[in-house]
Design a protein around this nucleic acid. Structure first.
Lengths: 209, 209
DNA sequence: TGTACATCAGTGAACGCGCGTTCACTGATGTAC
DNA sequence: TGTACATCAGTGAACGCGCGTTCACTGATGTAC
């Protein structure tokens, strides 16, 4: 018979909310975004299957908390990456992209969850704001490069193109679909190539239309 | 009590295999790639829950069949799109990209399944070949543009960059994450911008490194 | 410092549910003669 | 053309399973006096 979960030293857990979010994250890495169960997360946290309901209304609310926490981490990583480079340089764009790709690779399951379409997530204003904040990190770098305001069409378009490239690259690698490409295109050369291409074309005014 | 499933005119279904694949596809659009059940697919096909096991070993095998069928459709659509345009033109690249994006939008759930990481799919040589065939449609267009063989590094890299852009754009739109971008960037202008950018840079020999 | 008590975070048993899969079966099909 | 029979695609009942959630409960915490 299976060993009982490691008995907590105290009756109260201490920080069950965080422990559950972490446990769900781990389960999602193993079983995919839909493959986790409240019961198994509770087991991992060493707690009865009813305990989670003291902290979350239901299963979807737990999922939303996992997404929120992950988006905060992504935003922090992108911001830190941008801070370490010259504003507006291709190197800065590449560094932000690298943070994005690293985030995806470090937790592919959670990455898919964050960027997937989950009922109720797109209507949540706090999640929307976190997504916008991530995009703005890229947009600010592009704006600095072009010497135009962040809201300018050229800036928004170029930032979007960069986003699609990096997003696609992140997905294709975590989903192991990038192996078909015969040549060795490592993250750095890919990101620099894309950053230079978009910035130069934007500066020349040839993006969009 | 619920109405019984519409009685088939005959005891035998006729083409249960195809009917199940179609039913699973529809269910995936509603419930996501993990959200379908063999039982519900059987119900949709008007058949007992044991019937599917006459055609498929188990649940994963049904999924694999759905993926195979979808990849064939994607390849056909990309090939048809390429055939309608001048080989190597940006318009041809854009048209192939459009077929890709349309495929994603027509069945987002199945698209996520096809390009997601599902246990056993990457080891299936027949699925691998289908993926390669899709990539080659793009690579051939790029090769025609550059006047280089398909296997050339520059061709493979440029085709990969194109793939990431279009893949990222497809995902961001079906997952409703592209709305953050303030400006109206429709499919056509996006695809043409990306196609021109990549082809011109590749011709100038500035991709990669 | 000590005690009473409200609050809160846990427990564990129970529920109903739908699922994947197996089983012995039966009705329809098609082929050999 | 007619019949016997092997084959195959269905049926429907059954199984064991893990899940999400609720419930009445109890042990620990912290605050007011």
């Amino acid at each position: 018979l299976p060993a009982p979960p490691p008995a907590r030293p105290t009756f109260h857990h201490g920080d069950l909310r965080s422990a559950l979010i972490a446990a769900v994250g781990e389960l999602i890495e193993v079983h995919g975004p839909d493959g986790f169960s409240v019961a198994e997360a509770a087991r991992r946290a060493g707690v009865s299957s009813a305990a989670p309901y003291k902290h979350f209304r239901d299963r979807p609310e737990i999922l939303r908390a996992v997404v929120a926490e992950a988006m905060d981490r992504l935003h922090a990583a992108m911001t830190a990456a941008a801070a370490g480079q010259t504003p507006g340089s291709p190197e800065q764009i590449a560094a932000v992209g690298h943070a994005y790709v690293d985030f995806a690779r470090a937790g592919p399951g959670v990455f898919r969850l964050v960027f997937g379409l989950t009922e109720g997530h797109d209507e949540d204003p706090s999640l929307q704001a976190k997504g916008q904040a991530c995009f703005d990190v890229v947009a600010r770098a592009v704006a600095a490069s072009l010497g135009q305001p962040v809201e300018a069409d050229a800036v928004q378009r170029s930032a979007y193109v960069l986003w699609t490239c990096v997003h696609g690259h992140a997905f294709l690698t975590i989903d192991r679909k990038a192996d078909v490409v015969a040549t060795g295109f490592d993250d750095h050369s890919y990101l620099m190539a894309v950053a230079r291409a978009v910035l130069e074309r934007a500066a020349a005014g040839t993006v969009g239309g």
